[in-house]
Nucleic acid binder design. Structure first.
Length: 861
RNA sequence: GGGCGGUUAGCUCAGCUGGUCAGAGCGCCUGCCUUACAAGCAGGAGGUCGCUGGUUCGAGCCCAGCACCGCCCACCA
């Protein structure tokens, strides 16, 4: 017990490291792989980037998952929270490359093998950071079985999936227009691209019409924001329904600067009312044109290379120029040669790489793709049939919509850090298998897989799939996946697809999509904007419990601003619980723990309120309603347990109090406090664990983290007592307000006569908490000098001197005025024939009762 | 261009199937070092619930329109 009484504040920084140690050495977080998955509780953490550091999103999701995991562990389920990190191809490679540049070398200089070794070394050095940070948050992950998406057996699983899908015809290689990210030097998927609004120049360029009759237009004018790509034009398209242009279909134009003849084709994609109604078609450098090109069997010319420079095909004048330089040069040339008809500023959205921030260059290139339609259908059905439940439901609609419009996924990346494709080539031969081909002359495909390809296997590959392991039996399918909205498609949908395809089961039954935490000013939290708040700084300042509570309290189904006040509130809660516990331990011997023994009305009240808090907290956690779970605990601890119950029982704890009263209140206090600690533990594990160490009796488990969730005691529910005490509390507050307004000395005991029903059991409570002395029979007719309205009637103040009676009078009048207006409103309502006739009888009855009560109160004044 | 969500006290947000729903925390004001907690306690001020209509006996709560704000999806050169 030493340590708890000696401080008046909860000191997180002193307590947390010690508790983390105890948790980790207890083995509680690393359950035995036994029992069926349906009975166990299993969560696979969204693996953070191996080189990453804990940010607010991790902290929020960590708090959410840990609340769920701790709650279910306390319910007695075998609970495993699988921890691990993602190799995060582009992100990690970019980071290591940056450090190479600082050393004056480069990836290319090192060569692939040495570079990959460097990344592994980097991972050795920095990979543990985020795992340590999860510990500081108090996350009860299974740290003994940490996984990494490049682990040897994980890599085997990835290769196996690739090979299977290839042989099933779902993975194929194709020349296709991809999002080329010049920053990372790799193709990236559609989901890694973000549009940004930019203002470019829209140029009108004249393409001379070949064989134009003297009486017709001599040229076709096209509009473009990327004139440099005209060098790769292979057609001009018009809408066949466009009267101005339809007659041109089948004719030809001459491409300026290049002098190539281009056919004029008809395609309904072209908007007659946009620009000039004629579209230059560049299948090699524009996604739409690529589609048009496929429909019309056009050539795909490339004038831009993967290095972002113009290729030989661009012609001697432009070869080797950067794209932006080429644009200037092409416009210059067009102007010189008289083909430029107009130019004007034009604002539109263009794709940028999520990773490198560079503008995407659409290029035709030979890549590996995955056909998604066949996998998407069962994944959609899983959600439609609620085999996978997405919370909130609005996110399920987004998920389904995305799956309906799904397109092939470009899965190859031109990187060195990742799962290299299990593909070998020799001449025209292609070998796709788990093992290299026999014989000489084979060359392995240099590309690696999109990181999300391997993460899609996370829930089962972390448990040993494709082997049938005890872990897989015990913990797959997992129970819930908690994640941010932005990776619903990138990751969640793909896990469902892969899970169904390769295990025949959905990877999780529930998906909780949590808020994105914005900066307090509503902007994105980001390092580059300087709007980021480091959760570890917050933990240092306020404690992990405070941060966890705060994050849960601010979470909601939509984006929220970071609220330091909520963290402060959490800190207050931790401190409050700590001090309440100190108080209890100062007066009660925890070894003398006994069953609760309600003796007084406040005992029955708090025990009943505790039952409700237990039920409510469980419901809210199970319903993914974390903010109300957290705030509800706060309300119970402050608003009921500390503000009222502890104050109410103080007299019974005095040494002077009789032994029976002390025994009763001791049992009740210990019961309420220990169950409250358990209730709060999933949200604020540290402070509750710390108190538990001092409070526990011999029969309790050593760690609260390993204790059971308090069982329901329906026999302790007592609604009449709840009502009576609630009414008494209101009365106390009314009297305190009155005392304050009339300048009544805080300590002065005021003689009063209670003139209201409903306080039969709570009169003593009322008197003590409001510092009143209740008059006996002998003063039944003593004159009142003032009156205080309380629920159901009034308190008549007798013979008290030194008060501001004017203020008292004003207060009475204020009460009366309020009552009269409420009475008038109730009367009006009841006088309304429509209300009486159409409202449900119970509502009308309630209104009548309310009116009667109000009249009684007014009367008493 | 579609779709979704938001607009409630100075700030950040709660308000379940329409009838004590006008709330919380923080901030602010007043008074208290009351022997668990001054990171505390008690009291108080503060909102025509974005705007306009409608449905209803009754509307922050339902419907329509509008105005802002945010997010997602989308190939208009």
């Amino acid at each position: 017990m030493a340590g708890l009484e000696s401080r008046t504040r909860f000191e997180p920084s002193e307590v947390e490291p010690r508790i983390i140690e105890r948790w980790l050495s207890s083995g509680l977080f690393s359950p035995e792989a036994a029992g069926p998955a349906a009975e166990n509780y299993s969560v696979a953490i969204p693996p953070p980037n191996v080189t990453g550091a804990l940010h607010m999103g991790h902290a929020l999701n960590g708090a959410i998952q840990d609340a769920l995991v701790r709650y279910h562990r306390m319910l007695g389920r075998r609970t495993r929270w699988t921890l691990g990190t993602d190799h995060a191809g582009i992100a990690t490679q970019t980071q290591v490359e940056k450090s190479l540049v600082q050393e004056g070398t480069s990836r290319e200089e090192l060569g692939r093998e040495a570079f990959v070794q460097r990344v592994w070394a980097w991972r050795e050095r920095y990979g543990g950071t985020i795992v340590e940070q999860f510990k500081r948050l108090g996350a009860s992950c299974d740290y003994q079985h940490e996984r990494f998406t490049l682990d040897e057996d994980y890599a085997q699983a990835v290769a196996r999936v690739f090979v299977d899908l290839y042989h099933a015809g779902l993975i194929y290689r194709d020349h296709y227009l991809v999002n080329w990210d010049p920053g990372s030097g790799s193709a990236i998927s559609d989901l890694e691209v973000a549009d940004r609004e930019v203002t470019d120049t829209l140029y009108d360029v004249a393409y001379p019409l070949i064989g134009a009759a003297p009486d017709e237009a001599q040229e076709v004018i096209v509009a473009t924001v990327r004139p440099e790509t005209m060098l790769a034009d292979t057609a001009v398209a018009v809408n066949p329904l466009d009267e101005r242009h339809a007659h041109l279909i089948g004719r030809r134009v001459r491409l300026p600067l290049v002098n190539r003849e281009l056919p004029i084709i008809g395609d309904e994609y072209v908007k007659a009312d946009f620009g000039t109604g004629a579209l230059k078609v560049t299948p090699g450098h524009d996604p739409n044109d690529f589609e048009i090109g496929r429909r019309h069997d056009l050539n795909q010319l490339s004038v831009i290379g993967e290095d972002g420079r113009m290729t030989d095909l661009a012609g001697p004048r432009f070869t080797g120029l950067e794209v932006s330089e080429a644009q200037v040069a092409v416009v210059q040339a067009l102007r010189e040669q008289g083909y430029l008809r107009a130019e004007r500023p034009y604002t539109h959205t263009v794709p940028y790489s999520h990773r490198s921030g560079r503008r995407i260059e659409p290029l035709v290139s030979l890549q590996w793709f995955m056909r998604m339609d066949e996998l998407a259908a069962p994944a959609a059905e899983a959600v439609r049939s609620a085999t996978v439940r997405i919370h909130p439901a609005s996110q399920a609609r987004r998920y389904l919509q995305w799956l309906e419009e799904i397109r092939p996924w470009c899965i190859s990346r031109q990187l060195w850090w990742g799962h290299q494709l299990p593909v070998w080539y020799r001449g025209q031969e292609t070998h796709v298998a788990l093992t290299p081909p026999e014989g000489d002359g084979w060359r392995r495909d240099e590309d690696v897989l999109d990181t999300w390809f391997s993460s899609a296997l996370w829930p089962f590959a972390t448990l040993g799939w494709p082997q049938t392991t005890p872990e897989l039996d015990a913990f797959y399918p997992t129970s819930v996946l908690s994640t941010a909205r932005d990776i619903l498609f990138l990751w969640v949908a793909r896990m469902v697809m892969m899970g169904l395809r390769f295990t025949g089961e959905v990877p999780f039954s529930d998906v909780y999509v949590h808020s994105v935490i914005q900066a307090p000013d509503g902007r994105r939290m980001s390092k580059s904007l300087g709007t980021g708040i480091d959760p570890l700084d917050e933990i240092d300042r306020h404690g992990a419990d405070a941060v966890r509570f705060g994050l849960l309290a601010m979470s909601s189904s939509q984006d929220v601003r970071y609220s330091p006040e909520k963290v402060q509130q959490g800190q207050g809660l931790a401190n409050k619980l700590f001090n309440a516990s100190r108080f209890v331990l100062m007066h009660v011997d925890p070894a003398a723990r006994a069953a609760p023994a309600p003796e007084t009305i406040e005992d029955r009240w708090i025990l009943s309120r505790l039952e409700r808090a237990k039920q409510q907290t469980a419901e809210r956690l199970e319903g993914y309603d974390f903010s109300h779970a957290a705030l509800g605990l706060y309300d119970f601890v402050f608003g009921e347990l500390c503000d009222w119950y502890l104050e109410l029982v103080k007299p019974r704890l005095e040494p002077a109090a009789d032994a029976e009263a002390r025994a009763s209140v001791s049992a009740n206090l210990l019961h309420v406090l220990s169950e409250t600690l358990a209730l709060a533990h999933p949200v604020i594990p540290f402070v509750t664990e710390e108190i538990h160490a001092h409070l526990r009796s011999a029969s309790d488990p050593e760690l609260l983290a390993g204790a059971r969730w308090p069982a329901a005691h329906p026999e302790l529910l007592d609604e009449p007592s709840e009502r009576a005490v609630a009414r008494a509390i209101e009365a106390v507050q009314a009297v305190r307000g009155w005392r304050d307004s009339v300048g009544c000395a805080p300590r002065l005991e005021v003689p009063v006569r209670l003139e209201a029903p409903g306080y039969e059991q709570t009169g003593g409570l009322l008197a003590r908490m409001a510092r009143l002395r209740l008059a006996g029979e002998e003063q039944a007719s003593a004159p009142a000098v003032a009156t205080v309205a309380v629920p159901g009637g009034s308190v008549a103040v007798l013979d008290v001197s030194g008060l501001d009676l004017g203020a008292a009078q004003r207060r009475v009048q204020e009460s009366a005025r309020r009552l009269r207006s409420e009475i008038a409103r109730a009367e009006g309502k009841l006088a309304n024939a429509g209300f009486v006739a159409k409202a449900p009888p119970a509502v009308v009855e309630a209104e009548r009762a309310k009116l009667a009560a109000l009249r009684a109160e007014l009367e008493a004044l």
